[in-house]
Amino acid sequence: MSTYKVRADQKMLERTAYVLKCVAHPVRISIIDLLEQSERLTVTQLQEVLQIEQSLLSHHLTNMRDKGIVDTQREGKNVYYSLTDHSITNIISCIQSCKIFNKQ
């Protein structure tokens, strides 16, 4: 009989896979990176940096909001996006330090 065991419970593993599936896109990882640098940003501010169509950006932001990764706050005509949990930005650090992602 093996002495090894899975170190996380099934519910945590399922939530982790759910979040990772959501952020597994270059635009979404870029959004996380940008929101780490600023407390909150509007769609216009994100669009200026990412240089993608507003409709595509909104699609990604809606998906991330629905999965609980970003939150929104309306102020007048502007909707501000922010990260619900800044520890998700550890994904960026992990990607940058992991050798498998740095192969050319």
Rank of each mutant, 00 (worst) to 15 (best):
M1Y: 03
M1Q: 07
S2L: 09
S2F: 03
K5P: 00
V6Q: 04
V6W: 12
A8Q: 08
A8H: 12
A8D: 14
D9A: 13
L13I: 06
R15T: 14
R15Y: 12
T16Q: 08
T16D: 11
A17N: 06
V19C: 12
K21E: 10
V23K: 09
A24P: 01
R28V: 13
I32L: 14
D33H: 12
L35A: 04
E36H: 02
E36W: 01
E36A: 03
S38G: 02
E39A: 15
L41I: 00
V43A: 11
V43T: 11
T44R: 09
Q47M: 03
V49C: 09
V49N: 10
V49F: 01
Q51E: 13
I52H: 08
E53Q: 15
L57F: 08
S58Y: 14
H59F: 08
H59L: 14
H60N: 14
T62D: 05
R65L: 13
D66C: 11
K67N: 06
G68P: 15
I69Q: 02
I69C: 00
V70S: 14
V70G: 01
D71C: 10
D71T: 02
Q73N: 07
E75M: 06
N78G: 03
V79G: 13
Y81C: 01
L83C: 06
T84E: 11
T84R: 01
D85A: 08
H86Y: 02
S87D: 05
T89R: 03
N90L: 14
I91T: 12
I91N: 04
I92W: 05
I92Y: 05
S93K: 15
S93W: 13
C94V: 15
C94M: 15
Q96L: 11
S97N: 13
F101R: 13
F101C: 08
K103G: 10
Q104A: 11
